[in-house]
Design a protein around this nucleic acid. Structure first.
Lengths: 354, 354
DNA sequence: AGTCGCTTCTGAATCAATTCAGAAATAGGG
DNA sequence: CCCTATTTCTGAATTGATTCAGAAGCGACT
């Protein structure tokens, strides 16, 4: 049996292809009666509706935006920060009838192909750090908005002042009187040598600056700022990188809590990591905040019930903002660069050192 | 400036369009030297790569599968069950270089259009209950796998034995000796009269059966089975429907805890709802499990730390299974119908009544 | 009868690639 | 030098719709 197209129906009904097209896409352009007849024949032939690829090709718009993650998608779905962002983004997208095409980075090469083949009208690039996919996305020459990283002049951007915010988190602990502090940094998986540890250069503080190196490093820079200001010696402060994964973070936490003397406070670059610290502390019977203070970053939904002191950033609002930037006309001459507010939320995981 | 296409490049280099196409899609079909030259010209003209819509049209495959939710997408992203499912699905999808096109149901009509326009090779229909979108998806005549609901003969299906599992959850409480039990059912938003309460018919137990009416009702049926078997009078058991939302569930929980005499146990149709119950209990100083037992359903990630007794269903495995069913050849004569295992997990929210 | 204005329908061009059979060019062997 | 393979490249057909200018049909008005 032949494939059924508009033409098949047109021949059967005895009208032109155009008319059948109109029956589906512009019902007001033909008599109800004829439309009715066309629809009946379409039904009879089991026509699945106008081919979306052909339609998109001709129309020049897909009604879909691509959302590119620089990590695995399954990793993104395990990260409440990413999920919260998607919640916001999807809200504005679906209101305007726009679909979301999610693209992850399972292994070098695969995503590049998927990005090149994505039938979309624009991209939202969700990238905490520098990443090769950025270039791949840009090459499509479609509208793009970047989230968190990188800030590219001429490309709309949504982010927060990670460095400043991070220094506030650290300052909170320092002002409570903590002096033996350890840091757990959030490092993208891509920055790590496959399977093994972090790349040492990643933590080189001299290389860390503003938005140039992404949120993970900007936060480290912020911690650095605060420690310096408090008169601490940066090289005395143990700093462990880990991925943003509760399970993995526990390993870093274990090493920190093994230190002698044990730090009185831990700064975690994300809430997820902070939870890992709290897990290990609970397991070892270390009282929080009595014996150990912990501060996180992000304020994911689980942080409130957990009583975690952290820096709140407007996660879903980042999503809605990114969506609007992408979907609304917005012919601002200078591409919009939205720096959203953050705020330190003090809860129950921080107290003065014993 | 004209749009740059393969032809533009072909003219400029002085070769045929076919050759330029090969340069991008089949590098082995032409001399390295020529390919090099073509790529240089492409770069020079700022060619964004072969148009995905045209490519898809000609090739007949998109490399994308559509994931259809019968609720809002932003609602789905707030639901750890849905997110867990996506985590599993995305794992197998991205391994095979397949993108995910997410489609929600913001309001009647919008999703229908998006589904009709989706450039995809198949659909995964994630639907806890009967829903008009099912028909819309089926009409595309593409491969489909349904998750949880509905079971359509000839269409691959992934689910669990909701009714049996639910009766096990209820039995757990009954065997502990509870007799004053209340139920909070999970009702899809679509089943509710807009803005107001539930549709009464939804809870009519005589209408509830197996997979015909979706997971939410199947679970109620399971609770019913267990209560009957324990000799309770079904009409004595208060049952409140709510959406699967912690915040909304709190309202139902409040009403239940207002009852006099207060139930000694609450059966929640989902973990999210159970959390709502626990929130209200905590707020009122009602001790769990001392004064109140709670059992949930799903075993979402937050349930373990919360100590919630619940029925575990393999959430991410449902996703991977659905993905495989959709992506792998699988020319089984009878369409595969995978009923996954479930298991009651007893934790710290259940105890004998005081 | 002529003309104006509508509604309804059609034809041909267009969107941007891929595909496949076959032509041209090059290389290898006798 | 000729014949056969092999590599490299081309032309034309194909994919399935949308679009827009314009033709046909028809009633109303002058």
């Amino acid at each position: 049996m032949e494939r059924v197209t508009l033409q098949t129906i047109a021949d059967r009904v005895g009208v032109s292809r155009t008319t059948v097209s109109n029956a589906f896409s512009r019902p007001d352009q033909l008599k109800q009666e004829l439309r009715q007849r066309i629809m009946e024949v379409a039904e009879e032939l089991d026509y699945p509706g106008p081919n979306p690829a052909a339609r998109t090709l001709r129309r020049g718009r897909a009604g879909v935006i691509g959302v590119v993650f620089t990590e695995t998608l399954s990793y993104a779905f395990a990260d409440s920060y990413a999920v919260g962002f998607l919640r916001g983004l999807s809200r504005v997208a679906e209101q305007s009838g726009t679909g979301l095409h999610l693209i992850g980075w399972p292994s070098p090469g695969v995503a590049e192909e998927v990005i090149g083949d994505a039938v979309v009208d624009g991209f939202c690039l969700f990238s905490p750090e520098a990443h090769p996919l950025v270039e791949t996305v840009m090459r499509r020459r479609l509208p793009v908005v970047t989230v968190d990283h990188p800030y590219v002049p001429g490309v709309p951007f949504v982010g927060i002042e990670d460095r400043t915010a991070a220094s506030e988190a650290a300052t909170c602990l320092l002002e409570l009187g903590h002096r033996r502090i350890a840091i757990i940094a959030a490092q993208p998986m891509a920055a790590q040598s496959p399977g093994r540890g972090p790349e040492p250069a990643w933590l080189d503080i001299d290389l860390v600056a503003g938005h140039r190196f992404g949120a993970g490093r900007a936060r480290v820079a912020g911690y650095h700022d605060a420690c310096l200001k408090a008169g601490l010696n940066w090289s005395d402060i143990p700093i462990y990188p880990t991925t943003n994964d509760r399970e993995i973070a526990r390993r870093a936490a274990a090493r920190i809590l093994d230190l002698d003397p044990r730090p009185t406070a831990v700064i975690a670059a994300t809430d997820e990591i902070a939870f890992g610290v709290m897990d290990v502390a609970a397991q070892r019977g270390i009282d929080i905040p009595g014996e150990l203070s912990v501060v996180g970053f992000d304020d994911v939904p689980a942080s409130e019930p957990a009583g975690l002191t952290t820096v709140r950033q407007p996660i879903t609002e980042k999503g809605t903002t990114a969506g609007r930037l992408l979907l609304e006309p917005a012919q601002d001459d200078p591409a919009p660069c939205v720096l959203m507010d953050h705020r330190l939320i003090v809860r129950r995981t921080t107290a003065p050192p014993a």
